[in-house]
Design a protein around this nucleic acid. Sequence first.
DNA 1: TAATAGATTTGTATCGTTTCGAAAAACAGA
DNA 2: TCTGTTTTTCGAAACGATACAAATCTATTA
Lengths: 343, 343
Amino acid sequence: MANKKISIKDIAKALGVSITTISFIINGKAEEKRISKEMVKKVEDYVAKVGYRPNHLAQSLRSGKSKVLVLMVEDISNSFFANIARLLEEKAFKNGYKIIYCSTENNTEKAKELIHTFKSRNVDGFIITPTAGLKNEIENLIKEDFAVILFDRWIPDLDCSHVIVENRRSSFEATQHLIENGAKKIVFITVTSDQTQMQDRLAGYLEAVKMAKMSPYVFEEPFHTSTEEFQGDQIKEYLLDHPDADALFFATNYLAFEGLHAIRKLELKIPKDVQVLAFDDHFFFSLYQPSISAIAQPLELIADKLMEGILIQLDDCGKSNSVEFKVELVNQFIQRKSTEFKV
Amino acid sequence: MANKKISIKDIAKALGVSITTISFIINGKAEEKRISKEMVKKVEDYVAKVGYRPNHLAQSLRSGKSKVLVLMVEDISNSFFANIARLLEEKAFKNGYKIIYCSTENNTEKAKELIHTFKSRNVDGFIITPTAGLKNEIENLIKEDFAVILFDRWIPDLDCSHVIVENRRSSFEATQHLIENGAKKIVFITVTSDQTQMQDRLAGYLEAVKMAKMSPYVFEEPFHTSTEEFQGDQIKEYLLDHPDADALFFATNYLAFEGLHAIRKLELKIPKDVQVLAFDDHFFFSLYQPSISAIAQPLELIADKLMEGILIQLDDCGKSNSVEFKVELVNQFIQRKSTEFKV
DNA sequence: TAATAGATTTGTATCGTTTCGAAAAACAGA
DNA sequence: TCTGTTTTTCGAAACGATACAAATCTATTA
């Protein structure tokens, strides 16, 4: 039953024409190659009739280009990444690219393995949220002329295109906002990580606190991603040890979710007992009661810039090394009830 | 700089050995083909030294198999799908498959286009949340011996493997739960859609209401997905028209988010004024105050079964038609504060 | 020593395209 | 009719791998 897929060769045979001619016509080179009108019509009609579709695999093998990009994120089920993924996919599609995605789970070994796998599938480019351990692999990718662009974080000492946001600045300003609202003891809650975005967010906080001559309080959870259970027990313990903390600044939204659990268990009132603020907005924050202030990253813009940056490399094939595409985007601070001014 | 990728041919030349021999060794057929120990060692050493990796594209072209599966979901940024995606990707990876994903946005035309695109890339299988309009395309896929499995919903009159959940039953039981709690006027809130899962959820509700000799109240919003703004104004209007509604049953979680917005604007108390219940659990529901009861789909199991079902087809290549893999999984009802018994 | 069996290794077609260089056909002008 | 252009079409070699059939080599035996 399965009507075998027809190839260009079948068409050639059926029409008694050479393969080359068919190929030219299909690829719109009829003009250029001066193929006669009748021939073009004959072939086009037949192609339409049998519904021929070229085999992309073979094309890729021949051309060395696959029109496939890989999106390697930390965790595709995290809403930030899932949203970026959706936006990217849409934009990629418009430019004739497909996207393969995968989650690294911040596991350098897994990420390396993935990179190798995709290299051998001749993907054209990589969009990556890297871990520090990936430096060599990424350097190699660049050397081998793959298009590469990093986002969310980047790798120090590695000259590579990237799209990030103003983590430090936003964090600094948000902290100041808490201070202006009268916070005396602000705790910055983060996870153990050498990722640049986390470092920068911390740095912004520290800077603001120092400038206000306050003491910094940083609580660092062991590294984990958003997929695990949100019980917030560690944060709860920390808060019990620091009952005078009057503001919590979460380095990322999933930490905030844990924190809200903790706050609820301790029956603290927001913002009366503690102000709450988080990096990475989430629809959840506008619905929670009270609503939670957050620093929103410009998702659409991030996706736009990523696509722009990688297309530059893909288009001028080969000379990618010469291109510097390093973008740092502005975030938006969204004030909600959780950081309302205390009288 | 870009050290050209080396091919099997380069190795053969460098070692003065035939291509075939190299291929045998690389593919672990050395034993079977009685290649001498020394030869094997020589080749393996060289392969390791130069870090040769076979070109999957070429392999696929030759074998007709690409070890790539496509996951076509309604919207990858929806947490339900994003979670399934992550789980699937992981399982696929373990079985040597990669996953390409894409969002159909419930747009039949876009979906058709995607299917064609992927066909010509020789993907091995499709995992799809279909729209009704996709019937022909899917029939063709099956005829052409692609592995195909549907999930979340299925297509009536189409004999195709699928993994779904007991929508009707869970909906029925959840409605009964509301009734037992004393609800007198339960509104079922859904979106316009001919998708089977939505129909079944509605059917379960209607059945329970009828059995209790109550009147059904169904509010149907125009179709939309979770990515849009959650303002819930339409639901708010409906509730204003039906001030005596004392329980809301949302057909899916993003509708519940809209509903919660509406409820907040109307300053209704949950569960005192209205009980709230939703299909599709979300971490949000356990954190919201009060926490929201929900019907949780078994994500991990769904992903497991999908993988199992598609592997069956992939493994016995060709005879896929003969296999019947239709699974209906049990959901878990999670009772929380939003449907606590009223005295 | 030649024949034979078994152990190793190799040549070549193939998957479906693209593309280069060349061939064939058509048309002029002489 | 012949030569020279211009049009049009084609053959064959890649791309990188696999798999069939066949060739080569090494012992062993008659």
